[in-house]
Protein backbone atom coordinates (compact mmCIF):
# COMPACT_ATOMS: atom_id res chain seq x y z
CA UNK A 1 0.00 0.00 0.00
CA UNK A 2 1.12 3.53 -0.75
CA UNK A 3 0.23 6.44 1.50
CA UNK A 4 1.12 9.99 0.51
CA UNK A 5 0.40 12.70 3.06
CA UNK A 6 0.62 16.36 2.07
CA UNK A 7 3.60 15.45 -0.13
CA UNK A 8 5.44 18.41 -1.66
CA UNK A 9 8.67 18.90 -3.53
CA UNK A 10 10.55 21.73 -5.18
CA UNK A 11 13.63 20.92 -7.30
CA UNK A 12 16.56 22.96 -6.06
CA UNK A 13 16.80 26.12 -8.14
CA UNK A 14 13.21 25.86 -9.41
CA UNK A 15 10.69 28.56 -8.64
CA UNK A 16 7.54 26.60 -8.34
CA UNK A 17 6.64 23.40 -6.57
CA UNK A 18 6.77 20.29 -8.72
CA UNK A 19 4.55 18.52 -6.19
CA UNK A 20 2.16 20.51 -4.08
CA UNK A 21 0.34 18.95 -1.14
CA UNK A 22 -0.45 15.53 -2.59
CA UNK A 23 -2.70 13.29 -0.52
CA UNK A 24 -3.17 9.87 -2.05
CA UNK A 25 -3.67 6.31 -0.92
CA UNK A 26 -3.13 3.45 -3.35
CA UNK A 27 -4.50 0.11 -2.11
CA UNK A 28 -2.89 -3.26 -2.80
CA UNK A 29 -3.91 -4.68 -6.17
CA UNK A 30 -4.92 -1.32 -7.61
CA UNK A 31 -4.51 -0.38 -11.27
CA UNK A 32 -4.18 3.39 -11.17
CA UNK A 33 -3.83 5.63 -14.24
CA UNK A 34 -2.07 8.92 -13.66
CA UNK A 35 -2.85 11.65 -16.15
CA UNK A 36 -2.24 15.37 -16.62
CA UNK A 37 -0.58 17.83 -18.96
CA UNK A 38 3.19 18.00 -19.27
CA UNK A 39 4.79 19.74 -16.32
CA UNK A 40 1.89 18.74 -14.08
CA UNK A 41 4.24 16.73 -11.86
CA UNK A 42 3.49 13.16 -12.98
CA UNK A 43 7.12 12.16 -13.46
CA UNK A 44 8.15 13.83 -10.21
CA UNK A 45 5.45 11.84 -8.43
CA UNK A 46 6.94 8.64 -9.89
CA UNK A 47 10.35 9.76 -8.60
CA UNK A 48 8.89 10.43 -5.18
CA UNK A 49 7.32 6.95 -5.06
CA UNK A 50 10.66 5.30 -5.90
CA UNK A 51 12.72 7.45 -3.55
CA UNK A 52 14.65 9.09 -6.40
CA UNK A 53 13.09 12.21 -4.88
CA UNK A 54 14.47 13.22 -2.37
CA UNK A 55 17.58 10.95 -2.48
CA UNK A 56 18.83 11.47 -6.03
CA UNK A 57 17.32 14.81 -6.98
CA UNK A 58 17.78 17.32 -4.20
CA UNK A 59 15.33 20.05 -3.27
CA UNK A 60 12.79 21.11 -0.67
CA UNK A 61 10.85 18.08 0.40
CA UNK A 62 7.92 18.09 2.78
CA UNK A 63 5.11 15.80 3.79
CA UNK A 64 5.42 12.07 3.83
CA UNK A 65 5.49 9.14 1.40
CA UNK A 66 5.05 5.66 2.86
CA UNK A 67 5.65 2.71 0.57
CA UNK A 68 4.55 -0.52 2.24
CA UNK A 69 5.05 1.27 5.51
CA UNK A 70 8.57 2.50 4.67
CA UNK A 71 9.12 6.23 4.87
CA UNK A 72 10.78 7.27 1.61
CA UNK A 73 12.80 9.98 3.34
CA UNK A 74 14.48 7.39 5.57
CA UNK A 75 14.88 4.48 3.18
CA UNK A 76 17.18 4.64 0.15
CA UNK A 77 15.82 3.96 -3.35
CA UNK A 78 17.45 0.51 -3.54
CA UNK A 79 15.63 -0.53 -0.36
CA UNK A 80 12.32 0.80 -1.65
CA UNK A 81 12.93 -0.97 -4.94
CA UNK A 82 12.54 -4.33 -3.22
CA UNK A 83 8.83 -3.59 -3.05
CA UNK A 84 8.35 -0.96 -5.75
CA UNK A 85 9.79 -1.20 -9.28
CA UNK A 86 9.96 1.61 -11.83
CA UNK A 87 9.96 1.67 -15.63
CA UNK A 88 10.85 5.07 -17.05
CA UNK A 89 10.13 6.92 -20.28
CA UNK A 90 13.43 6.54 -22.10
CA UNK A 91 13.50 2.83 -22.85
CA UNK A 92 17.03 2.74 -24.27
CA UNK A 93 18.55 4.91 -21.57
CA UNK A 94 17.50 2.56 -18.78
CA UNK A 95 18.93 -0.58 -20.33
CA UNK A 96 22.22 -1.75 -18.81
CA UNK A 97 22.93 -4.79 -20.98
CA UNK A 98 23.03 -5.67 -24.66
CA UNK A 99 21.29 -9.05 -24.46
CA UNK A 100 17.79 -9.57 -23.05
CA UNK A 101 18.84 -12.26 -20.56
CA UNK A 102 21.59 -10.08 -19.07
CA UNK A 103 19.17 -7.20 -18.66
CA UNK A 104 16.90 -9.41 -16.55
CA UNK A 105 19.87 -10.81 -14.59
CA UNK A 106 21.20 -7.38 -13.64
CA UNK A 107 18.76 -6.65 -10.83
CA UNK A 108 18.65 -10.26 -9.62
CA UNK A 109 22.43 -10.35 -9.30
CA UNK A 110 22.50 -7.01 -7.54
CA UNK A 111 19.94 -8.05 -4.99
CA UNK A 112 21.91 -11.20 -4.31
CA UNK A 113 19.11 -13.59 -5.23
CA UNK A 114 20.38 -17.16 -4.57
CA UNK A 115 21.79 -18.82 -7.68
CA UNK A 116 19.43 -21.77 -7.73
CA UNK A 117 16.50 -19.37 -7.67
CA UNK A 118 17.72 -17.06 -10.45
CA UNK A 119 16.95 -19.32 -13.39
CA UNK A 120 13.33 -19.77 -12.33
CA UNK A 121 12.86 -16.04 -11.83
CA UNK A 122 14.27 -15.17 -15.26
CA UNK A 123 12.07 -17.75 -16.98
CA UNK A 124 8.99 -16.60 -15.14
CA UNK A 125 9.57 -12.88 -15.67
CA UNK A 126 10.06 -13.42 -19.40
CA UNK A 127 6.94 -15.57 -19.60
CA UNK A 128 4.83 -13.08 -17.66
CA UNK A 129 5.84 -10.33 -20.10
CA UNK A 130 5.14 -12.69 -23.02
CA UNK A 131 8.69 -12.56 -24.37
CA UNK A 132 10.14 -15.99 -23.52
CA UNK A 133 11.39 -16.40 -27.07
CA UNK A 134 13.45 -13.21 -26.91
CA UNK A 135 15.78 -14.41 -24.14
CA UNK A 136 18.97 -14.65 -26.20
CA UNK A 137 18.25 -11.75 -28.53
CA UNK A 138 20.11 -8.46 -28.77
CA UNK A 139 18.13 -5.60 -27.26
CA UNK A 140 19.22 -3.26 -30.05
CA UNK A 141 17.48 -5.52 -32.59
CA UNK A 142 14.10 -5.51 -30.86
CA UNK A 143 11.15 -3.30 -31.72
CA UNK A 144 10.10 -0.52 -29.34
CA UNK A 145 7.24 -2.59 -27.96
CA UNK A 146 9.49 -5.58 -27.31
CA UNK A 147 12.10 -3.39 -25.62
CA UNK A 148 9.43 -1.94 -23.37
CA UNK A 149 8.43 -5.45 -22.34
CA UNK A 150 12.06 -6.31 -21.59
CA UNK A 151 12.17 -3.29 -19.28
CA UNK A 152 8.98 -4.52 -17.61
CA UNK A 153 10.34 -8.08 -17.27
CA UNK A 154 13.58 -6.75 -15.74
CA UNK A 155 11.43 -5.19 -13.03
CA UNK A 156 8.97 -8.06 -12.52
CA UNK A 157 11.88 -10.50 -12.04
CA UNK A 158 12.57 -8.63 -8.81
CA UNK A 159 8.99 -9.44 -7.72
CA UNK A 160 8.00 -6.02 -6.46
CA UNK A 161 4.49 -5.63 -5.03
CA UNK A 162 4.07 -2.36 -6.91
CA UNK A 163 5.18 -1.35 -10.40
CA UNK A 164 5.25 2.29 -11.49
CA UNK A 165 5.50 3.07 -15.21
CA UNK A 166 6.08 6.52 -16.69
CA UNK A 167 4.48 6.72 -20.16
CA UNK A 168 5.38 3.18 -21.22
CA UNK A 169 3.66 3.49 -24.60
CA UNK A 170 4.98 6.93 -25.56
CA UNK A 171 6.58 5.88 -28.82
CA UNK A 172 4.57 2.77 -29.60
CA UNK A 173 1.91 2.15 -32.21
CA UNK A 174 -1.67 1.31 -31.15
CA UNK A 175 -1.20 -2.47 -31.25
CA UNK A 176 2.08 -2.50 -29.30
CA UNK A 177 0.59 -0.05 -26.80
CA UNK A 178 -2.35 -2.37 -26.19
CA UNK A 179 -0.04 -5.34 -25.76
CA UNK A 180 1.96 -3.50 -23.11
CA UNK A 181 -1.28 -2.74 -21.27
CA UNK A 182 -2.45 -6.33 -21.64
CA UNK A 183 0.81 -7.42 -20.02
CA UNK A 184 0.19 -4.99 -17.17
CA UNK A 185 -3.37 -6.24 -16.78
CA UNK A 186 -2.15 -9.81 -16.48
CA UNK A 187 0.45 -8.85 -13.87
CA UNK A 188 -2.27 -7.02 -12.00
CA UNK A 189 -4.95 -9.69 -12.15
CA UNK A 190 -2.95 -12.92 -12.09
CA UNK A 191 -0.02 -11.93 -9.93
CA UNK A 192 -1.73 -9.30 -7.81
CA UNK A 193 0.83 -6.61 -8.63
CA UNK A 194 -0.26 -3.05 -7.93
CA UNK A 195 0.12 -0.98 -11.12
CA UNK A 196 0.54 2.79 -11.31
CA UNK A 197 0.88 4.03 -14.87
CA UNK A 198 1.40 7.54 -16.24
CA UNK A 199 -0.24 7.66 -19.65
CA UNK A 200 -1.49 10.26 -22.13
CA UNK A 201 -3.64 7.82 -24.09
CA UNK A 202 -6.92 8.24 -22.27
CA UNK A 203 -8.66 5.49 -24.23
CA UNK A 204 -6.19 2.90 -22.93
CA UNK A 205 -6.70 4.11 -19.38
CA UNK A 206 -10.47 3.99 -19.79
CA UNK A 207 -10.19 0.39 -20.88
CA UNK A 208 -7.53 -0.99 -18.51
CA UNK A 209 -7.25 1.18 -15.42
CA UNK A 210 -9.58 0.82 -12.45
CA UNK A 211 -8.89 4.22 -10.98
CA UNK A 212 -7.71 7.54 -12.36
CA UNK A 213 -5.72 10.32 -10.73
CA UNK A 214 -5.52 13.68 -12.48
CA UNK A 215 -2.71 16.14 -11.83
CA UNK A 216 -2.49 19.83 -12.61
CA UNK A 217 0.42 22.11 -11.71
CA UNK A 218 1.78 19.82 -9.04
CA UNK A 219 -1.55 19.17 -7.38
CA UNK A 220 -3.80 16.16 -7.43
CA UNK A 221 -7.13 17.57 -8.59
CA UNK A 222 -9.22 14.43 -9.04
CA UNK A 223 -8.91 10.83 -7.93
CA UNK A 224 -11.39 8.01 -8.03
CA UNK A 225 -12.87 5.21 -10.11
CA UNK A 226 -12.50 5.82 -13.85
CA UNK A 227 -16.19 6.49 -14.65
CA UNK A 228 -16.54 8.83 -11.67
CA UNK A 229 -13.49 10.89 -12.72
CA UNK A 230 -14.68 11.06 -16.32
CA UNK A 231 -17.96 12.57 -15.12
CA UNK A 232 -15.95 15.74 -14.42
CA UNK A 233 -15.08 16.01 -18.11
CA UNK A 234 -15.06 19.81 -18.01
CA UNK A 235 -12.53 19.83 -15.20
CA UNK A 236 -10.35 17.38 -17.16
CA UNK A 237 -10.40 19.52 -20.29
CA UNK A 238 -9.42 22.56 -18.25
CA UNK A 239 -6.43 20.58 -16.94
CA UNK A 240 -5.35 19.90 -20.53
CA UNK A 241 -6.41 16.25 -20.49
CA UNK A 242 -7.88 14.61 -23.56
CA UNK A 243 -11.20 12.84 -23.08
CA UNK A 244 -12.70 10.12 -25.30
CA UNK A 245 -14.72 11.44 -28.22
CA UNK A 246 -17.83 9.54 -27.15
CA UNK A 247 -17.63 11.41 -23.86
CA UNK A 248 -17.37 14.72 -25.73
CA UNK A 249 -20.39 13.67 -27.80
CA UNK A 250 -22.34 12.81 -24.66
CA UNK A 251 -21.65 16.24 -23.18
CA UNK A 252 -22.82 17.92 -26.39
CA UNK A 253 -25.98 15.79 -26.36
CA UNK A 254 -26.61 16.80 -22.76
CA UNK A 255 -26.33 20.45 -23.68
CA UNK A 256 -28.95 19.92 -26.38
CA UNK A 257 -31.17 18.27 -23.81
CA UNK A 258 -31.06 15.00 -25.71
CA UNK A 259 -29.34 12.87 -23.11
CA UNK A 260 -29.42 12.72 -19.32
CA UNK A 261 -27.68 9.45 -18.52
CA UNK A 262 -24.14 8.80 -17.38
CA UNK A 263 -21.19 9.71 -19.59
CA UNK A 264 -19.95 6.82 -21.76
CA UNK A 265 -16.25 5.89 -21.62
CA UNK A 266 -15.83 3.59 -24.58
CA UNK A 267 -17.35 2.61 -27.88
CA UNK A 268 -19.78 0.08 -26.41
CA UNK A 269 -21.17 2.54 -23.92
CA UNK A 270 -21.25 5.20 -26.64
CA UNK A 271 -23.30 2.91 -28.83
CA UNK A 272 -25.74 2.21 -26.00
CA UNK A 273 -26.08 5.94 -25.42
CA UNK A 274 -26.77 6.71 -29.09
CA UNK A 275 -29.32 3.89 -29.35
CA UNK A 276 -31.12 5.43 -26.40
CA UNK A 277 -30.96 8.94 -27.87
CA UNK A 278 -32.10 7.79 -31.32
CA UNK A 279 -34.79 5.44 -30.01
CA UNK A 280 -37.98 5.96 -31.99
CA UNK A 281 -40.80 7.05 -29.72
Amino acid sequence: MIQLKNLGFRYSGAERLALDGIDLTVEDGAFLGLIGSSGAGKSTLCYALSGIVPHHYRGDFYGEARIEGMDSAEHRPEELSRVLGCVFQDIDGQMVASVVEDEILFGLENFGVPRDEIEGRVTQALAAAGISELRGRLISELSGGQRQKVAIAAITALRPKIIVLDEPTGELDPRSSRRVFETLKELNEKHGVTIIVVEQKIMLLCEFAKRLAVMEEGRLILEGEVPAVLQSAGRLEAAGVNIPRVTTLARALREEGLYGGKLPLNLDEGEAMMREVLRPC
Binding site: M203, A252, M274
Partner: peptide
Amino acid sequence: QIPALGARLGGPYAEAFSVEELL
Protein backbone atom coordinates in the same frame (compact mmCIF):
# COMPACT_ATOMS: atom_id res chain seq x y z
CA GLN B 1 -14.13 6.52 -32.15
CA ILE B 2 -16.83 8.61 -33.83
CA PRO B 3 -16.55 7.02 -37.31
CA ALA B 4 -16.56 3.62 -35.59
CA LEU B 5 -19.66 4.59 -33.62
CA GLY B 6 -21.34 5.83 -36.81
CA ALA B 7 -20.55 2.55 -38.55
CA ARG B 8 -22.12 0.56 -35.69
CA LEU B 9 -25.27 2.66 -35.77
CA GLY B 10 -25.52 2.18 -39.53
CA GLY B 11 -28.03 3.89 -41.83
CA PRO B 12 -27.59 7.66 -42.17
CA TYR B 13 -25.18 7.63 -39.20
CA ALA B 14 -22.59 5.51 -41.00
CA GLU B 15 -21.49 8.65 -42.83
CA ALA B 16 -20.98 10.65 -39.63
CA PHE B 17 -17.34 11.52 -39.14
CA SER B 18 -17.11 14.05 -36.33
CA VAL B 19 -18.83 14.84 -33.05
CA GLU B 20 -20.55 17.79 -34.77
CA GLU B 21 -21.91 15.68 -37.61
CA LEU B 22 -23.27 12.99 -35.30
CA LEU B 23 -24.73 15.64 -33.02
